[in-house]
Simulated scan of single mutants.
Amino acid sequence: MARFTGKSIIVTGAGSGIGRATTLLFASEGGRVIAADKTDAVEETCALVDKAGGTAHPILIDAGNEEDVIRAVAMACEYYDGLDIMFANAGISGGMANIFDTDVALITEVLRVNLIGPFLAIKHAAPKIVERGGGAIVLTASVAGIRSGAGSPAYSASKAGVINLAMVSAQQLSGSNVRVNAICPGLTETGMTKPTFDYAREAGKMDRVGRLNPLRRGAQPEELAKVAAFLASDDASYVNGQAIAVDGGLSSSHPVTKQEYGKTAV
């Protein structure tokens, strides 16, 4: 497939995990990517794209800083003559403190990166995408933004905001031919979750990772990248203002007594 041939694309959080996997996928299908990240790991991402014969240029940014987001959008317009797709993927976890142990500085920083970041991406990318006749914006939310139990209060609140932001911005871009959707990953092996996966492997407990979802496993970044790429592509031309859970089925149920396949629940 070559769904993104000639398309100008920005990916934030492109230095690792879902961002890196999506950058590689976009580029493999002909996309020209501005790979943005706060660390120089994005240089490695671009080197991988180059080795595979694709096109990507790195830029170091803070996704929650307006001037940096403006720089990334300007770079796409300078290098690729405009912008077609924005994937606002960058985010931070904010730890696992409960509400009463979370200080204002922590939740402010989580909201700045996880929610204000996507807001800035929409604010500055959408007008440029409109100039190209339309395109797509994809935001990374989380199953933690759908309901309680998948993240800290700060993280969960920020991702709930991202889901609503996708809906509101889709409406406010009515008639522009710019679609806005969000993906809601479940437990995925990324830089953010690396300690969990590393511990499970070292302790021989990988069978416990993702055990609460029906597929009984965690996801790999490439699985999320495929959904993000679908939403960014013309294959999703009639999908707009939606939050798509990619979580192995975790969010499909309310808490119940677990039933093993072929066994009677007790």
Rank of each mutant, 00 (worst) to 15 (best):
G241K: 06
R208C: 12
Y238F: 13
D207I: 01
V209S: 05
N213S: 11
G248N: 08
R201W: 12
V239A: 09
A243G: 10
E223G: 10
A236D: 00
S253L: 14
S251I: 07
G210P: 08
S253K: 12
E222N: 11
S233T: 01
A236Q: 01
A225H: 14
E202M: 06
H254Y: 10
A232E: 00
A203S: 15
D234R: 01
A228K: 02
A203K: 11
G248V: 11
S253M: 15
A200I: 14
A236I: 02
K258S: 08
A229L: 08
R211S: 12
A203L: 13
A200G: 03
P214G: 05
Q242F: 02
P221Q: 07
L215P: 09
E202V: 00
S233Y: 00
G241M: 07
K205L: 12
G204Y: 12
R217K: 15
A232V: 00
V256Y: 12
Q220P: 06
P255K: 07
A229S: 06
A229N: 02
G204E: 11
K205F: 02
P255Q: 05
L231R: 00
V256K: 07
E202P: 03
T257W: 12
V209I: 14
L215R: 13
G218H: 08
S252N: 12
R217N: 01
A236Y: 00
V209W: 07
V239I: 15
G204V: 14
K258F: 15
